[in-house]
Design a protein around this nucleic acid. Structure first.
Lengths: 212, 212, 212, 212
DNA sequence: CATGAATGAGCCTTCATTCAT
DNA sequence: GATGAATGAAGGCTCATTCAT
């Protein structure tokens, strides 16, 4: 149901899907490079492989492109998280595996995350709301994961806080790459964050012993 | 030394200082509201209390305004952090006080933080570099604080990681307010983050006991 | 002979006739509402009940639609006037009846008249000429009517003038409805115009006596 | 108070006045030639003698230009009518003189009248209302003239009707020039209309005697 | 015959920047 | 030093028209 909120003059639904994927792909590249505002609709059309007229058959506004991009990013992240979090056997080990998978995913999607952070405010209030819901849903997934995997009980608020921390620490790996990626690889970053998380939960061996 | 990298046609240095402060104040309000790109130079001039012609006597480019704004934000944050971190008597308690002060500061400067996150990429590569240096310096202050205040030794990397975590958790309080500020007040957010930090360092009472 | 000057790729003459009638009907509605320039070809196609591709099988240019519309309006008005003016027994009474019928017709075709007044200039010079001929023919019909029905002789010029006056007074009923239709009904408007006409011709009872 | 409803970024009121007059002059020429819709803002700017940027300092919308044009036409016509109708000594003779002056005026302003007839519908509902008020005021002036100048009493409705007739007969001289101006000069047109008017009022010598 | 996706010229409008006063 | 009118490049978007299916 990708981008079902964006109207199109085209009738063929499959074509819409295909063209919009072209569009998103082209736009992501451009947004990464120059940001939403510095990218022109003509550039988007060109990068998507069609004319400006055709572009506007599939969207109504330049902002629609941004929405489509954001939506597709979330959709992708969500799908991957769901796959990684499927908790047949909820255990501490599963928690660690899932968090690792999440950090790995954030490593893969660095550019997309940067786009989200910088351009979301260019969406309409309504679209922002929509996108925030999706982000909220992802944090909730992390909360669920924690709840299911930790032996002792935590206050809801603490679960919520920790889920948030994990979530943004993952995003920051990409957003603050200029700082973090000088000192860490994604592997070592993941490793230490997990160790610190477990320590915080009173479950790990503590930071001192956790030799890298 | 506010914005010494930005050229002006005016000779009187004090006047420059005064005018630029007007400018920054006006611009921050506008950037908060509509972002850098959607704000026009005319609006900035008006909000600053002088004409568009005068505006351009004190800057060379619209981007200069953004730089001035970013620079002033960092200057302000840095000054406040320095005041709060002054470590005559480094102790665990001092660490806790300092971190609390930092979170409080981030609460005060929410809007400014949001501007930084969203508009930094609109600066020139050079200006971005400059601003990143300042951010790096702040993280370093946190690292120093940790190093000085924690009884046992931590690996440099872990210090760096934890400093980063604290730093961004503070920024996220403002940036993700739509999510966090529904569940927490700045007091409770600070409280739990500190508790979790200490637990992670193997120093607190753990999360279970730390009743809110 | 509807629109015989407009080319079509279709062979079947009857189909052309049918499709064009659909087109005219749809277009008139739209032109009334938003004028020729603000109406798109897509809208015309939709209102006509077929696709944009099909539309262009029956016309060559958007302007063709306007021409078809104008032509059909004149055809219709002309037919109705001919019916009303058929002068087996030319008499003053017949004149009055015919003029009344004309005003009634103009009342019915208000919207169409407005379209003619406002959009005719969007036709090509050539098409304008064609349409003006038709309008001229109608005025001539009125002239003939006057000539046949008035007992005494009038100078040709006066006949021409009076025919013109009647003609435009009819059109104005629709075109200036916002003014006239606040004060008059079509019945009272007709009534007074006829009285005034007869008075001008030295045939009526004068305006004073002609109680409404 | 010309065009006081149209906003401008320029502060100097006199400059606004001057520039707008340039604009109106340029626009009238273009609208005459190609109509409002087929005229581009760039053409208007060029014909006005300034750049497109400057044009938009004095208006907000292309439609504003049309409004300014319409308003100025009415203003001009109104002023001239007021001058011609000043009724120190209301008499039949004065009526005839005034009507003659009106027809002469309409002859002078043919192109402007055509513009009004064809483009008024392109104005916003609000602006149309405004412009219609002005037109109504002019008809009222004619009514007043009739009332003051005719010896015997006429019903209000008849006055209104006759005023309207005179008004549109004047406008039609320009709008239907392709027809009328083949048979008449403005002098002869005026002559016969006046004769017919007087006859209708039961005041002239009738049409038969009124040799041309 | 009918359809509708594709095209791109062209339009209106904005806004950073300059410079004469 | 301050002002604000002038500039024009550039951007978002529309829509008449075509043509392969």
């Amino acid at each position: 149901m990708n981008g079902s909120k964006v109207t199109s003059t085209i009738k063929d639904e499959q074509l819409i899907e295909r063209r919009r994927n072209q569009m998103i792909k082209g736009a992501v590249t451009l947004f990464k490079e120059k940001g939403f505002h510095r990218t022109t609709t003509r550039e988007i059309a060109k990068a998507s492989g069609f004319s400006i007229g055709t572009l506007y058959e599939y969207i109504r506004t330049k902002e629609d492109v941004l929405f489509l991009v954001c939506d597709s990013i979330y959709e992708k992240v969500k799908a991957r998280m769901e796959a990684a979090f499927s908790n047949e056997n909820a255990s501490l080990d599963h928690l660690v595996q899932a968090v690792r998978a999440y950090y790995l995913l954030m490593d893969e999607m660095q550019d997309e995350v940067v786009i989200m952070y910088q351009e979301m405010k260019s969406l309409s209030k309504e679209a922002q709301e929509y996108v925030m819901q999706k982000e909220k849903a992802m944090v909730t997934m992390l909360e669920q994961l924690l709840e299911d995997s930790i032996p002792h009980r935590l206050k809801q608020r603490d679960i919520s806080l920790i889920a948030n921390n994990i979530f943004i620490q993952g995003q920051m790996w990409g957003f603050r790459r200029w700082m973090l990626q000088k000192e860490f690889t994604i592997a070592s970053y993941t490793e230490r964050q997990v160790a610190f998380l477990l320590a915080g939960l009173g479950l790990g061996d503590g930071l001192r012993a956790a030799g890298c």
